[in-house]
Design a protein around this nucleic acid. Structure first.
Lengths: 229, 229
DNA sequence: GTCTATAGGGGGATAGAC
DNA sequence: GTCTATCCCCCTATAGAC
């Protein structure tokens, strides 16, 4: 707690953002929690938006650099041969789980990131896209090479589903509690569970896609409020 | 568009909530889009919170009733025998995908719901928990019976991961665009792709869980801002 | 760097006329 | 049921003293 004002603001913001959401968190809440003056955010960061961007970028840049480094290491070892899908999955998602497990701040950040993939705000989405561009390109290429029998569009959907599972694994604690009592305190167990689920999904038999209208449900009740659609 | 004021407000709110988030959507935005007066929300619903609750409950109650009806039908047909996991997965997640495919309003709502599972707001979480209580209990029981060889805690995590994949399937369009050009216009294809992924994950080989500290990454760089944790 | 004070805008809610 | 007008609150941002 005895660090400089700027760091205390970043830590408090990260924490409050994940508790209340970006919009509902006010500068007053942040500066109070950080034991700083209301004007301190604007002095150190310039604006609330700039603070948000700093909170995300400082850890996300590091996270994606780690992912790229992990892939570099795997590819150097393979000497041009395709990697095993499991290795790629473990390096991409393992880095995220480990960040969540490494410290309270890391865990807070991963929860924040998980729920911000689907963030409505335009400006958040734009800098996230920038931060992810390189790592996505590298992993796509590695996966395509490792899974030559899987159509690329099918793989992209599966990668997307995997990210959804990661997001819930790390940040959907409230949704999980809905399901009943589970132990969420052991990161190694979480890592292991998530990996076997992800590999199972990624390597599932390929579905036969045929374009046609979606099956209608056996409607027992009418669709609600259909007049409003 | 030529319905009553109350319905127009509900439709406009659903739409704006998914675009901007609950908090960033103002009553002024909603009433303007609905061609209604600012005071209309308070007249028809009492408060902004009550409006939010109405937006969610009108479709969510219907959705979960459909799920329960689908499970009733399967169980009646099975006459006490355990169901196939695939049938249960299809009935739970299929109803959601079909709602998303059934109308523009249904799709909007499912996107909204997907990103609200992880909604920070206490009051939203509390009425969602209420809406889900029965359907979760029924499906848990059906799954436990269908998967006697899977430890219950393992299954709960997998169910949770499946919900994450559904959430992204339906609402993570922006995250998906990050990955590259994909066709998101065919709901039947989406249904098929999601199902094979989910079944693959659900039926994956069971991991061996052993409690221990998480593996450390081969750190090439120091963890960022560790002083703040 | 840190503070107080305040500007300037926008929020949700409501009273009361029609 | 619908409208206008308005209350009162809290927001972000900044000016200027220390």
């Amino acid at each position: 707690m005895e660090t400089d004002t700027r760091s205390r603001i970043l830590a408090a913001a990260e924490d409050l953002f994940v508790q209340h959401g970006l919009d509902a968190t006010t500068l007053r809440m942040i500066t109070t929690a950080a034991h700083a003056n209301l004007a301190a955010v604007n002095y150190h960061f310039g604006s609330k938006e700039a603070l948000i961007e700093t909170v995300f970028r400082r850890r996300l840049t590091w996270l994606n650099d780690q992912r790229i480094a992990a892939l570099d290491a795997l590819e150097a070892e393979a000497k041009g041969a395709p990697l095993k899908p499991r290795q790629i999955v473990e390096s991409y998602f393992g880095v995220a789980i480990r960040l969540a497990a490494s410290s309270p701040g890391g865990r807070t950040f991963m929860r924040l990131l998980g729920r911000t993939y689907t963030e409505p705000s335009e400006f958040v989405r734009s800098f996230l896209a920038e931060e992810y561009a390189e790592v996505i390109a590298r992993y796509k290429a590695a996966f395509f090479k490792a899974l030559p029998d899987v159509p690329q569009e099918e793989f992209l959907w599966r990668f997307h589903f995997m990210m959804g599972a990661l997001s819930y694994a790390v940040s959907g604690v409230d949704a999980l509690r809905l399901l009943g009592p589970v132990d969420e305190s052991d990161p190694e167990a979480l890592y292991t569970r998530l990996m076997s689920f992800l590999i199972g999904g990624l390597r599932a038999p390929l579905p036969e896609i045929q374009s046609q209208a979606v099956r209608k449900p056996r409607a027992k009740r009418a669709t609600p409020d259909r007049a409003s659609d």
